[in-house]
């Protein structure tokens, strides 16, 4: 991964060859929006930005900054017309006006959400009643995933879901605990657990 070797430089004023590790340091200090945009600068930049190493360093870097995004989950209980959507609201600090930066409408309609979970800046939003719709979103990149359908829970229908990082594989995982089936008086039942693994960049 190289920028241009000095001999091939086009312009005299860009008189320095910037080594990759310095370009990386510069890119790490950019807002996510700029990072996404600069993937089109050249192939070596795009490759650098896609590397797990870059993603990890960028995450460490952003953890030291103050959060600037508010996530609102809106269900049927909220004023009509706002239903069933997730809103990302940017907030740059005290005294600044918060702005709606992104909005995502969920396809099937949502009555009630569970309390959202977060891990490494990713937000997991699940609808409360099983079999629930589970969404994972990355407010920084505005990516939004809907997880595959989960098996319904026969106990109380209330969604029991966890979200975290597997320290061995460094993958993000979503865990759903449920009662698969039972007899009428719950004296004989079988419990279960479903684990979803998100892609490493998810």
């Amino acid at each position: 991964m190289m920028l241009l070797p000095p001999a091939k430089r086009r312009r005299k004023s860009a008189a320095v060859y910037i080594p990759d590790d310095i370009s990386e340091q510069v890119l790490l200090r950019l807002p996510v929006k700029s990072i996404l945009r600069f993937r089109t600068v050249c192939k070596s930049w795009r490759a650098m930005i896609a590397e797990p190493r870059f993603v990890r360093l960028q995450l460490q870097m952003s953890e030291s900054r103050r959060p600037s995004m508010l996530i609102l989950l809106l269900g049927n209980m909220d004023p009509h017309g706002w239903m069933d959507r997730i809103r990302f609201i940017g907030y740059l600090g005290y005294g600044k006006v918060a702005q709606l930066v992104h909005e995502r409408v969920c396809s099937s309609g949502v009555a009630v959400w569970t309390r959202p979970l977060q891990c490494d800046g990713l937000i997991l939003a699940a609808t409360a009643w099983s079999p629930s719709d589970i969404y994972v979103c990355n407010p920084a990149t505005r990516e939004f995933f809907e997880l595959p359908a989960v098996t319904p829970d026969v106990l109380d229908g209330f969604q029991k879901v966890g979200f975290g990082v597997d320290p061995w594989t460094v993958e993000h995982k979503v865990v759903q605990c449920l009662m698969r089936d039972s007899n009428k008086d719950f004296t004989s039942y079988s419990n279960g657990c479903e684990v979803f693994t998100l892609g490493s960049r998810a």
């Binding site: 920028l3 600068v41 050249c42």
Partner: peptide
């Protein structure tokens, strides 16, 4: 603008 600043050729 960035390519110009860094003297990078667009290889896409």
């Amino acid at each position: 603008q960035n390519r110009e600043t860094f003297g990078i050729v667009n290889d896409f």
